[in-house]
Simulated scan of single mutants.
Amino acid sequence: MSDDPDLPPDSPPPVPPLDPIPEPDPDPRAGRAAFDRRMLEALVCPQTQGPLSYDAERQELVSRAANLAFPIRGGIPVMLADEARTLD
Rank of each mutant, 00 (worst) to 15 (best):
L68T: 08
Q49T: 03
A34H: 06
A65I: 04
L40D: 02
P24W: 08
P14D: 03
G75P: 08
D27W: 07
A84K: 01
P22N: 11
L7A: 00
P77L: 09
P46E: 08
D19W: 04
R73N: 07
P22Y: 11
L61Q: 03
R73H: 12
A65Q: 07
A33F: 11
A84P: 04
R37K: 13
L18P: 07
I76T: 10
S2F: 14
V15L: 09
R85I: 06
P20N: 00
P12Y: 14
D27I: 03
L43R: 09
S11G: 00
P28V: 00
C45W: 05
L61M: 08
Q47T: 11
R37Y: 11
P71T: 02
G75I: 04
S53V: 08
I21N: 11
P28D: 00
R38N: 14
N67A: 11
A69S: 04
R58M: 09
P77F: 06
M1Y: 14
R38K: 15
P24N: 07
D88M: 05
Q59N: 09
N67R: 15
M39A: 04
S2C: 13
L7R: 04
V15G: 00
A84R: 06
D6L: 15
P13R: 15
I76W: 15
S11C: 02
G50W: 07
I72M: 03
V44F: 15
A65M: 03
L80R: 09
A81W: 13
P9I: 14
I72N: 08
D19C: 03
D10W: 12
D25S: 02
A65P: 08
Y54H: 12
L7C: 01
T86H: 12
L87V: 05
P24V: 10
G75T: 13
L61T: 06
L61V: 01
L68Y: 09
P20H: 00
L43D: 02
A34I: 01
F70W: 08
I21R: 13
P71G: 05
D27F: 07
Q49R: 02
N67D: 09
A69W: 12
D3H: 15
V62F: 14
D88I: 04
E60Q: 12
E57V: 06
D27H: 06
P71R: 01
R73I: 10
T48Q: 05
P12C: 07
P17M: 07
L61D: 04
A84M: 00
L43P: 03
D82C: 00
L43I: 06
L52I: 07
